[in-house]
């Protein structure tokens, strides 16, 4: 009986987290279009609903009712499976993110590594999508994307190792609690090198500008998405935005203090303890989401060889040096 109650509670919590995330994703597209519109001297969506607030739903309805085109020479099973692999692996990562103290669906001891594992599974969806479409552009797009994601995963993992060393744990909840005890309240200051490397890798990992080479329109039409239409295209889109949220959440949790405020702030202003942790978490996540859109409106796209050179010749060596220095400092100075 007790087991059933636990299962029912978990299922409800999972449904709530997924539902709320989907709503956030819908409005992230609105937020993005508004922000970029303002930055480019436009006003963004205004027609559907009050100030265009219903635009995401209009888009959703449109993409659901569009014709679902499957190329004649496609490998049908894999063509259907690819978006499912991407969305499923990205959504599973949501399970380990603590939105507030102990607020994760599953408080794993290897939380961060679990997110990496799921991210590396999402690569299969991309490769399979490109291969099964049986089209040159799709195939090149998927190969590019896979090469990019695999390369930047290394830099990302190594830069996070500095955080693991500082926190002495791989559990996301413990990492947040360890930051609160720091004199500066967050790892972003002491781990500034790892932080910068991680932020750059996060852009590459989610295929966002300036590293959105897999969908470089001028060269590859739409990369691995070329042959997809209707709701399958919408699923890839959904996965991209959820993975942006996950990267933003990882940055908030590992470098910006997560749902906690720095110890010295709560000691100076004790009433801030009353604010629920999820509010601080969301403020940090949305600050980073804004940064994503800001960069997209500002920077042009890199060339592919430049992208690989940045990843392998700068980010990976820098993050390795960062680990060594962090380890020495932790061992002898702290």
């Amino acid at each position: 009986m007790e087991l059933l109650v636990t299962i029912a509670k978990t299922v409800l919590y999972v449904a709530a987290v997924f539902g709320v995330t989907l709503l956030h994703v819908a409005y992230a597209t609105y937020f993005e279009r508004k922000v970029i519109g303002r930055m480019q001297g436009r006003i963004g969506p205004v027609e559907v609903g009050f100030r265009g607030l219903l635009q995401p739903f209009a888009d959703m309805v449109k993409s659901l009712f569009k014709e679902d085109i499957i190329p004649a020479a496609a490998d049908r099973t894999l063509f259907f499976l690819a978006p499912v692999i991407v969305v499923a692996s990205v959504m599973t990562s949501l399970a380990v993110i603590p939105f507030f103290n102990n607020g994760a669906i599953a408080n794993l001891n290897v939380g961060v590594l679990f997110i990496f594992a799921m991210a590396s599974l999402a690569v299969y969806g991309i490769i399979v999508a490109g291969w099964s479409s049986n089209s040159k552009y799709s195939f090149f797009g998927s190969i590019r994307s896979a090469a990019q994601v695999i390369s930047y995963e290394i830099a990302m993992g190594i830069s996070l190792a500095g955080v693991f060393l500082m926190a002495g744990s791989v559990n996301l909840n413990d990492i947040v609690l360890a930051q609160r005890e720091q004199p500066l309240g967050m790892f972003a200051v002491l781990q500034i090198v790892g932080f910068v490397v991680f932020v750059i890798s996060a852009f590459a990992e989610t295929n966002r500008t300036p590293f959105d080479l897999p969908e470089a329109e001028t060269e590859l039409v739409a990369g691995y998405l070329t042959e997809y239409s209707g709701f399958r295209y919408a699923l890839f889109f959904l996965a991209e935005y959820i993975s942006m949220y996950i990267m933003a959440a990882l940055i908030a949790l590992c470098y910006l203090g997560g749902w906690a405020l720095p110890g010295f702030v709560t000691r100076a202003l004790p009433f801030l303890e009353q604010v629920p942790g999820i509010i601080w978490f969301l403020i940090k996540v949305y600050a980073f989401m804004f940064f994503y859109f800001w960069v997209r409106a500002t920077l042009p796209r890199y060339r592919f060889d430049q992208l690989m050179a940045i990843g392998w010749k700068i980010l990976i060596p820098v993050s390795v040096v960062n680990i060594v220095i962090t380890a020495f400092v932790k061992r002898w100075l702290m």
Binding site: N109, L113, F116, A119, S120, V123, Y124, I143, I150, E153
Partner: peptide, 25 residues
């Protein structure tokens, strides 16, 4: 062995098998 499980996915499924797939393609 949760660490081994995650490393199995990251290294074998995420890196080595992707290289297999590259080669096949």
């Amino acid at each position: 062995a949760e660490f081994l499980a995650v490393i199995q996915v990251i290294v074998y499924a995420g890196a080595i098998l992707v290289l297999f797939l590259f080669l096949v393609m």
